[in-house]
Amino acid sequence: MAPLTLDDLRKKREEARKEIYLREGKYKSKITVHMGTCGIAAGAREIVSAFLGEIEALSAKDVMLTTSGCAGLCSMEPMATVELLNSPSVKYVKLTPEKVKEIFKVHILGGKIVTDYAIGIGSEKAG
């Protein structure tokens, strides 16, 4: 590799930052894909890949993608919960990779809830 100049170093830093953004914990939105046995059977893993694909394709660096157990509505799987900073969480049901694409653009990046695929806003009260 050719030695870097001051400018190259700045560019290199910008590039390198993209690789470690996960570790710095700065997020505006969080997606939780429900991966109970029911979810996995209904295709939740494909949904995770689809979200991940969107994150990569759109270079979204402030989205956290995580998984959790069954959400309790097994007949509606695959499901995902989307939370934007300072707004209530939204549960999406019967997801497909196409729906994921739309939710990602409209809700996560655009901030508007895709009401057609959503089953509800907010979560159950914790006992």
Partner: peptide
Amino acid sequence: EYGLLGNNILG
């Protein structure tokens, strides 16, 4: 390799 050590550091 990155030119951070050696001659003419960062140009």
